[in-house]
Simulated assay, not measured.
Amino acid sequence: MWREDKQFERWMEQANQPFTGWDFSYLVETGRMNSDCLRWSYGSMAMPLMQDAKSMLDMGTGGGELLSMLRPWPKFVCATEGYRPNLSVAKERLEPLGVTVLSVEDDDRLPFETGQFDLVLNKHESYSPREVRRVLTVGGYFLTQQPGGTDCFEINERLGVPLNSAFAKWKLDAAIRGVREYHFEVEKQSEQFLRQRFYDVGPLIYYLKAIPWQIPDFEVDKYREELYSIHLHIEQQGYFEVTQHRFYLLAKALA
């Protein structure tokens, strides 16, 4: 029983800390969680686009961790964040550097002028292709990397929670159809399924707190028995392996 497993209880206590920003180095750099390498680099694609742009929007900036490292920036840079706990973190990190950081909760209503940006970046953030096209100049670029609809489905299976039926259809083909409908030309794209491993149950809990859409009602106490089952699996196997679903597209705004 988990009540008699002191190590399991220690993992529970260590994982019971608030998650802010979008920084998994606490888990990755200690080797407690890792993933296979993607065939592409979001940062290596973003930086040349930034160098050719005069204005840029970073959608879903998290705590501004990635944006703060993607330098040099265009002359005018804005960032949005929809998750309230991250907003103050992003403002504190980015606003002293000259970035305008705004809260956005409705993908269909971005608080920007039509044609305001030469470049829109979006890593793992929801978006409306119509609204992205509206805020882009003709000839501007939209680069997005997305988690696909079957991302880490093994977690849902072990916790007994079905995947969101609407989100389950989210994949590269659907994203391409969406941007083409709003006058984009897709110049580059790729999709990949890769392994992600958790080497103790603590990082899994930390991860689920950071991505509440995976298990919308996730609470440690509610799923303690299922988490203990995964803990025992890790004790035997050495890790708990899931399948990441990732894709990206680079699209140019047409007239």
Rank of each mutant, 00 (worst) to 15 (best):
F193W: 09
Y206V: 02
D200F: 03
F184S: 01
W170M: 01
W170G: 01
W213H: 14
E131M: 06
P216S: 07
D151I: 01
I155D: 03
Y228E: 13
A166D: 15
T144K: 00
C152E: 01
G178P: 07
E181K: 15
V186K: 03
F167L: 05
F193A: 10
S128Y: 05
K209F: 05
R197V: 10
V186A: 02
V120D: 02
Q214V: 12
E187G: 08
D200V: 04
R177W: 10
R197T: 11
E219C: 13
I155L: 12
R195I: 14
G139P: 12
F153C: 08
F142Q: 02
L121Q: 00
V220F: 07
E219W: 10
R180F: 04
G149E: 13
L119C: 01
L172T: 02
R224E: 09
Q192L: 15
A168L: 08
E181F: 12
N164T: 14
W213V: 13
K209M: 06
S165Q: 11
L172R: 06
L163V: 15
D221E: 14
H183T: 06
F153S: 07
G178L: 04
L208P: 05
L121N: 02
N156T: 09
L204M: 08
V186I: 10
L194G: 12
F198P: 07
E226R: 15
A174W: 12
G140C: 09
